[in-house]
Computed example of a mutant assay.
Amino acid sequence: MKITLNAKEHDLSAKTLAEALSELGMTSPALATALNGTFVSRAKRVDTRLTEGDRIEVLAPMQGG
């Protein structure tokens, strides 16, 4: 299915948000995720189903100054 991740289109076989992150190599536990503009906690990613055209935003903490 086609989804948009951080404004870039991807074609994935994943059915859930957790599977999508894994398929895309985003395995860090320190990620914030949103699906179609709504925050999704780490605990709910495994149960959050994806559908064609969903928009996923992923943010990771950055260090520096």
Results as ranks from 00 to 15, higher is better:
Met1Pro: 04
Met1Asn: 04
Met1Ala: 03
Lys2Cys: 01
Ile3Pro: 02
Thr4Ile: 15
Asn6Val: 09
Asn6Lys: 09
Asn6Cys: 08
Ala7Leu: 13
Ala7His: 15
Lys8Asp: 09
Lys8Ile: 08
Glu9Lys: 01
Glu9Ile: 03
Glu9Leu: 01
His10Ala: 07
His10Cys: 07
His10Pro: 01
His10Trp: 08
Asp11Trp: 08
Asp11Ser: 15
Leu12Thr: 09
Ser13Glu: 13
Ser13Asp: 09
Ala14Arg: 00
Ala14Val: 00
Lys15Asp: 12
Thr16Met: 12
Thr16Trp: 11
Leu17Asn: 04
Leu17His: 05
Leu17Arg: 02
Leu17Tyr: 03
Ala18Met: 06
Ala18Arg: 00
Ala18Asn: 00
Ala18Thr: 06
Glu19Lys: 02
Glu19Pro: 05
Ala20Trp: 03
Ala20Thr: 00
Leu21Glu: 01
Leu21Phe: 04
Leu21Trp: 04
Leu21Thr: 01
Glu23Val: 06
Leu24Ser: 08
Leu24Cys: 09
Leu24Asp: 04
Gly25Trp: 02
Met26Trp: 02
Thr27Asn: 12
Thr27Cys: 01
Thr27Arg: 07
Pro29Arg: 03
Ala30Glu: 07
Ala30Phe: 02
Ala30Val: 00
Ala30Tyr: 03
Leu31Tyr: 06
Ala32Lys: 09
Thr33Ala: 13
Thr33Leu: 06
Ala34Met: 14
Leu35Ser: 06
Gly37His: 11
Thr38Ile: 13
Thr38Ser: 13
Thr38Gly: 00
Thr38Val: 15
Phe39Trp: 08
Val40Met: 05
Ser41Trp: 06
Arg42Cys: 01
Arg42Asn: 06
Ala43Glu: 15
Ala43Asp: 13
Ala43Ile: 12
Ala43Phe: 11
Lys44Trp: 05
Lys44Arg: 12
Arg45Met: 14
Val46Ala: 15
Asp47Met: 14
Asp47Ala: 15
Thr48Ser: 05
Thr48Glu: 06
Arg49Met: 14
Arg49Ile: 11
Arg49His: 13
Arg49Lys: 15
Leu50Val: 11
Leu50Asp: 13
Glu52Gln: 14
Glu52Gly: 09
Glu52Tyr: 06
Glu52Phe: 08
Gly53Trp: 02
Gly53Glu: 08
Gly53Ser: 07
Asp54Ser: 11
Arg55His: 07
Arg55Cys: 10
Arg55Phe: 06
Arg55Gly: 03
Ile56Pro: 05
Ile56Gly: 03
Ile56Gln: 00
Ile56Arg: 01
Glu57Gln: 09
Glu57Asp: 14
Glu57Gly: 07
Leu59Tyr: 03
Ala60Pro: 09
Ala60Asp: 00
Ala60Gly: 12
Pro61Lys: 10
Pro61Gly: 10
Met62Asn: 01
Met62Arg: 06
Gln63Cys: 10
Gln63Arg: 10
Gly64His: 05
Gly65His: 11
